[in-house]
Computed example of a mutant assay.
Amino acid sequence: MYRLIVLLLLAACAPAPKTVAVGRYRAPDAPIYSNAVMDQNRLVGQWTQVAAFGGAACKPGGAEISKGAGGLQIRYRLCESGVQMAGAGPMSSEVVGRFDVPGQPGPWWILWADGDYRTLVVGSPNGRLGFILNRGPFPADRLKAAKDVLEWNGYDLRQLTVY
């Protein structure tokens, strides 16, 4: 019994694990679909974050995707749920348009890419992340299309911050 009390006291002194507060930005019962016909190699390049859910509390970021020997690699700094998230590593994918990205609160599903791969809408089935990446000019018609895709996949657009 004495050992149990000592162990409990030691456990109480241990620092709490760091966690990132994440929101739920989509209806849990809403269907969500990823882009299953995309050319993942066209994701390579520099991307700028132009919108995010819960993004009013931090500055927009971006991502650089490159092709390595083992597949796609990413280096990113993004505003997600009001928190700056940064990381780097492989973008592993077993299904086209769906990626596991290091340090993320859920998988990245590419919900939509415009025909020229200038705009990406990224979401997650768990609803804990959602953002729009772009390269080059970001005209109003692509913003409208991106918002339509997010809404169609169950996202609450009232929580979307457009930078």
Rank of each mutant, 00 (worst) to 15 (best):
R3H: 14
A140L: 05
W47P: 05
R26K: 14
T19P: 08
Q84I: 15
M1V: 08
A56E: 09
K18I: 09
I65H: 05
D141V: 02
C58H: 10
G97V: 00
Y2N: 13
R142V: 01
L8W: 01
P137F: 04
C13P: 10
L8Y: 12
T161Q: 05
S81T: 06
M85W: 12
V101N: 02
Y163M: 05
Q73M: 14
Y117L: 13
A88R: 15
W47S: 01
I74W: 03
Q40A: 08
Y117T: 12
K18P: 07
P102S: 06
D116M: 15
V95L: 05
P28H: 09
V37N: 13
C13F: 10
G106S: 05
V83P: 07
G55W: 08
V162C: 14
E80W: 11
P105A: 07
L8G: 11
A69D: 09
A145H: 15
N35S: 11
L160A: 03
S124Y: 05
V50I: 06
L9M: 13
V50G: 05
M91G: 04
L72N: 01
V20Y: 09
D141F: 06
P105I: 03
Q104P: 04
A113Y: 07
V20Q: 13
G23F: 03
R128K: 06
A88I: 04
G71R: 13
G62H: 03
L43V: 03
A69T: 11
F131Q: 02
L129Q: 09
P90Y: 03
V37W: 12
R42Y: 10
R158P: 02
V44M: 11
F138R: 03
F138N: 00
V121M: 13
A14C: 14
M85Y: 11
A140F: 08
P102V: 02
A16H: 09
N35M: 10
Y2P: 11
S124L: 01
A86M: 08
Y2L: 14
K147P: 02
A21E: 12
G115M: 11
N153C: 02
A140R: 08
W47H: 05
I132H: 04
R3K: 13
G89A: 01
I74G: 05
P31T: 08
L157G: 09
A36K: 13
A36C: 12
